[in-house]
C-alpha cells in the first residue's frame, strides 16, 4: 500500500429516514440522501443516490431457505464540485443465489411462555450468496473508471452472542477488469485497453457493547470496523512498479445507538475515521465523518 497524499476530510451526513426508505429490499427502487461535504477548505453539497432494478425468486424450504436473483444498480455520491467528492459512483449487475444457512425451530404456541428462553433457529450459521457480476466504477470526474466481469461472494450474519461479533460479514469479487479511463495510466504512458485480473474483498465487523458485564452507560455503544482490499494482477510492469495495483481502505467507527424503546429526536450519533485507497481514489486519504441519524 502506498500513501502518496494525505487529506483530511470531514463529511457531515444528516440522513433523512425517508431516503433510507426501502432501498435494498425492493427489487426496484430509488434512494436519495443529501449531504454536506467539506475538504481542505472546499465545501460542496452532495447527494447520495441509488437506482435499483431487479427480480427475485424465493424458496422457503424447512432448512436452507434460498433466493435466486438478479439485480442491476447504480449507486454513489454526486457532488456539486466533483473534485471535492470522495465517493465513487458504481454501476453493477449481478445474478445468483442466496442461501440461509439456518433451520427454523418449531416453537409451541403458548402466550404464557412468550418470554421463555430459546432461539427461533435450530441452527444458524448466517447467509451466503454467490453470483456472477458485471461492474463499472468511476469517480465523479470520470478520470478513473474501470469495468469488471466476474463472480461475487457475500456472507452476512446478525449474531452478537459468544464469539460471533468477531466473525465478519464479508463480500468478495474476482474477475477480469479493464480500465475505461485513467489519468494515472495516461501519465505513465500505458494503453487503456489492457485487461487484468482484479480481486476486491471487504469485511465488516459490528460489535455491540451491550453485554451483561458492561456498565450501563456504555451499553448503547457499537463499534464498527470495515476493511476493503483490492488487488490487481497481470497489470503492466510500470503500473506494478508504481504500486497502483493494490490498495486497502480501513474504516473504524463508534456509534451511540439509543436503547430506549421510546421515540426521541436522534436515534444514533456516530463518528467514523477512514484511511486508505480505493481503485478509483488511489491516493490515500484520511477522513472523519460525524453522522447523526434522526428519528422521524
Amino acid at each position: 500500500m502506498r500513501l502518496t497524499t494525505i487529506a483530511a476530510w470531514l463529511l457531515i451526513a444528516i440522513v433523512p429516514v425517508a431516503a433510507h426508505g426501502q432501498a435494498g429490499a425492493r427489487p426496484s427502487g430509488v434512494s436519495f440522501a443529501p449531504a454536506l461535504v467539506a475538504a481542505e477548505g472546499d465545501r460542496t453539497v452532495a447527494a447520495r443516490v441509488g437506482l435499483l432494478a431487479g427480480s427475485r425468486r424465493h424458496e422457503i424450504a424447512r432448512a436452507f431457505p434460498s433466493t435466486r436473483y438478479w439485480r442491476a444498480e447504480a449507486r454513489g455520491t454526486l457532488a456539486a464540485d466533483p473534485d471535492a467528492n470522495p465517493e465513487p459512483v458504481a454501476l453493477q449487475a449481478a445474478g445468483g443465489i442466496a442461501i440461509s444457512l439456518a433451520r427454523p425451530r418449531t416453537v409451541a404456541f403458548d402466550p404464557d411462555a412468550v418470554d421463555a428462553p430459546g432461539r427461533a433457529m435450530a441452527f444458524d450459521y448466517g447467509d451466503v450468496s454467490l453470483a456472477a457480476q458485471a461492474h463499472v466504477e468511476t469517480n465523479q470526474r470520470r478520470t478513473e473508471a474501470r469495468a469488471a466481469l466476474g463472480a461475487e461472494l457475500i456472507y452476512t450474519h446478525d449474531r452478537q452472542g459468544g464469539v460471533w461479533p468477531l466473525v465478519p460479514s464479508l463480500y468478495a469479487s474476482a474477475g477480469i477488469a479493464r480500465p475505461l479511463a485513467s489519468e494515472l495510466r495516461d501519465t505513465l504512458g500505458l494503453p487503456d485497453d489492457e485487461s487484468y485480473v482484479r480481486l476486491v474483498a471487504g469485511g465488516a465487523w459490528h460489535i455491540s457493547a451491550d453485554r451483561r458485564w458492561m456498565p450501563r452507560p456504555f451499553r448503547p455503544v457499537w463499534l464498527h470496523a470495515q476493511l476493503d482490499l483490492y488487488r490487481e494482477a497481470d497489470v503492466d510492469a510500470a503500473l506494478e512498479q508504481s504500486r497502483l495495483d493494490d490498495g486497502a481502505r480501513v474504516a473504524l467507527g463508534a456509534a451511540y445507538r439509543l436503547l430506549s424503546a421510546e421515540r426521541r429526536i436522534v436515534d444514533e450519533i456516530f463518528i467514523r475515521w477512514t484511511n486508505g485507497e480505493t481503485p478509483t481514489l488511489p491516493a490515500a486519504r484520511k477522513a472523519w465523518m460525524l453522522g447523526i441519524v434522526l428519528a422521524p
Binding site: 424465493h58 424450504a61 424447512r62 444498480e73 440461509s100 427454523p104 447467509d127 464498527h224 470495515q226 441519524v293
Partner: peptide, 25 residues
C-alpha cells in the same frame, strides 16, 4: 450506515426469508 450496501441488502432479504420459514415451520 456502517457497511456496504450489498451487505445490508442481503441482511434484509435474509431476515425476510428466515422469518417466513419460521412462520411456516
Amino acid at each position: 450506515e456502517h457497511e456496504a450496501a450489498v451487505l445490508f441488502a442481503q441482511r434484509t432479504e435474509a431476515n425476510a426469508r428466515r422469518l417466513a420459514a419460521f412462520c411456516k415451520a
